[in-house]
Design a protein around this nucleic acid. Structure first.
Lengths: 221, 221
DNA sequence: TAAAGGGTTACGGTTTCCCGTAAGAATTAT
DNA sequence: ATAATTCTTACGGGAAACCGTAACCCTTTA
């Protein structure tokens, strides 16, 4: 049974809707925070006071502002929270809708549900909460049905690492040294070139710039 | 006096909050649509039936889905709406927070208010509605106070055109021909190189990939 | 142990990009 | 009209990226 819920979401406009949705489900013990650091603090306090939360609904991207934060986003918040309260159920509520990312969240961070923000998000969020309350996972429909678009490359962690480096301004020829440093294999320049070419070929792109734009659009980086 | 409001916003979770906010301001004649095409249709109908809207609150980015749309986003919706009902007041409600874009909206599309989605967006939206009701413009605080971050390049339409072409996979050396075709000046390859260099220098970037990533993050392209 | 295979790396030629310089065109001032 | 200023373009050397080939290394198999 879910009684106490924490919402971590930087958009007030979304926060209010989520709270209202919870109310409609008969959940009135809801807290919301605008920063990940606050979310972790609340959860820590909940555990300490023996009034722990049953569910965390969190966004992935949080806008930076003047308040300096230790935890920049949901991706970092989730493992931190798991350490403090391993049994806390977690639903991610984000605009990102990339199958490989969502699968990663379920597999590596062991989240309980994922809802894409969009035209029917409130309805989906309700379903997700109800599903999670029954100790089941809520996986977006477009993932369970295999309606994935074809021609869409499935980005590996290696791909993301390389592309992120490029997006951060590193020259291709400098990447091998970095990869050796961080113990990533393969690290040869040729391998990197090959991999990038393969990705671009798959997506029918010609230039790195195009790839970066795509990855940003898809929230891959 | 604002009585009848149309909300164009593809996120249900945001839609609900906006509606609630309007209620709190005593406005109960609110309609909402998830697609720009629907928004235009509603406004046309309103004018035709002599029950026109007093205010449009619209997002800029709308997710594409299976429903094919003529109007892809707020940027195209606004001029279309202006043609149908020139006196309609318009508040843009978007995550984008780029000064030059916002200024462009006020200058070129003659919008009445702009609110950035974020940590205090509902409060800001309320203020915006009240301000617009008094026939005044609501310009975000960070624009009126000159608290703009330094070192942030102010992207011109020319810049955006070039960067968009790069992000679409066009080679730098092919851009001049394209610019000549579309009657854009300057079109020389050197000018393009110069401009890109200038932008990157300003932002302390080294590579195009980095610039693309930045522009995507900022919603510039 | 030897052979085969897949994956990784090294190398060279070509294209594109980068960047400084200088010539050319357009605008404004004298 | 001429000069001065600014903006635009052309050119050329050098660096980086691109792309195919071949050598290398590691694992698997006979």
């Amino acid at each position: 049974m879910i009684k106490k819920v924490l919402i971590a979401e930087d958009h007030q406009s979304v926060n209010i809707s989520v709270e209202k949705t919870l109310e409609e489900l008969g959940i009135d013990q809801t807290d919301y925070v605008y920063y990940c650091d606050d979310a972790l603090a609340r959860i820590q306090k909940g555990v300490k006071d023996d009034q722990s939360y049953d569910l965390l609904i969190t966004d992935l991207n949080f806008k930076e502002d003047t308040r300096v934060q230790k935890i920049p986003g949901g991706l970092e918040l989730i493992p931190a929270v798991r350490q403090v309260q391993p049994d806390l159920r977690i639903i991610v509520f984000s605009v990102l809708c990339i199958p490989s990312t969502i699968e990663m969240l379920f597999e590596k961070l062991d989240i309980d549900g994922y809802v894409c923000k969009g035209r029917n998000d409130v309805k989906a969020l309700k379903e997700a909460i109800e599903t999670v309350a029954k100790n089941q996972r809520y996986i977006p429909r477009h993932l369970t049905q295999n309606t994935r678009q074809k021609n869409v490359h499935d980005f590996t962690e290696y791909d993301i690492k390389i592309i992120t480096l490029l997006a951060n301004g590193m020259r291709q020829k400098d990447i091998p040294a970095y990869l050796v440093e961080s113990g990533t294999k393969p690290s040869g320049l040729s391998s990197i070139e090959k991999r990038l070419n393969y990705i671009k070929e798959t997506l029918e792109f010609t230039k790195n710039e195009q790839l970066i734009a795509f990855c940003k659009d898809m929230g891959i980086i």
